[in-house]
Amino acid sequence: MSGAQQSFKILWGMAIDLDKCTGCGACMVACQAENNLAPEKDASKKQRVMNWLKVFELSNGKPFPDHDTAYLPRPCQQCGNPACVPVCPATVTKKDEEGGIISQVYPRCFGCRYCMAACPYKARYFNWYDPEWPQGWDKTLSPDVSVRPRGVVEKCTFCHHRWMKAKDKARVAGNDPYDLPEGAYVTSCTEACPNGAIVFGDLNNPKHLVHKLAHSEYAFRLLERLGMDPQVYYLSRREWVRRLGNHHLENEKTGEFTPLGGGHHG
């Protein structure tokens, strides 16, 4: 911050239709397999479990039969004005690359967890122990993503390695790696979702569907009023869902607020 936010020609983003998500968890499993997350034996200790992508259950708070449920998959929001980046003492996490994906460089992280304290989405996870796989399972690990040791923080990277691969494929084919057609690069969760609830693409590219969806009247972003400018958009035709994405005082209309924004030290 201190200084203008970097602007990018490409802005990778998601539009997740919450009316289409049924909470099955295929995205979460696909994410783990893609990004080398180790399974955990006691997954009921939810505050210790690592999920780069986590599906939250939302309730409209009304009793049966007026009750309504929505599921909200939460990847890293890749904020335009991230809370985590300026606080990192060792320049581990940055938003400095075309595409606007917030990087996390595991070999440099020394595990102070200040970024986790800063992230209101709880999108950052700490390796409390060295990852452990059942015998032989480590042979299924993907070569695209480095395995993290204990003591470092990790988070969703929008499957950044897939972008690197897509760019290389374009280069070898003689195409412009910075003008990928829609679908040439999508995240593992986008690809997996059987309901097609996730749309992924370049928010700045009018040829990509997300560009249009981000401007939908049903679109909203999580905690938008805090001013973090996330690159993940959610869609819902249900007002209570849109309202639940942001804190609203009772007298406020849905979606009406002035984003706060950081802009302090750091």
């Binding site: 911050m1 201190s2 300026p86 606080v87 990192c88 003492p89 060792a90 320049t91 581990v92 440099r108 992280c109 020394f110 595990g111 102070c112 967890r113 200040y114 700490f126 390796n127 040791p149 204990r150 003591g151 470092v152 923080v153 030290h265 750091g266």
Partner: peptide, 26 residues
Amino acid sequence: LDVGQPLRSWFGFWHANVHSMLVEVM
């Protein structure tokens, strides 16, 4: 003790992010 990787704790000095209050603290 509190940092995940004590052997790297000097990174806060070496790769200091001047925007971070924690760097100032360190």
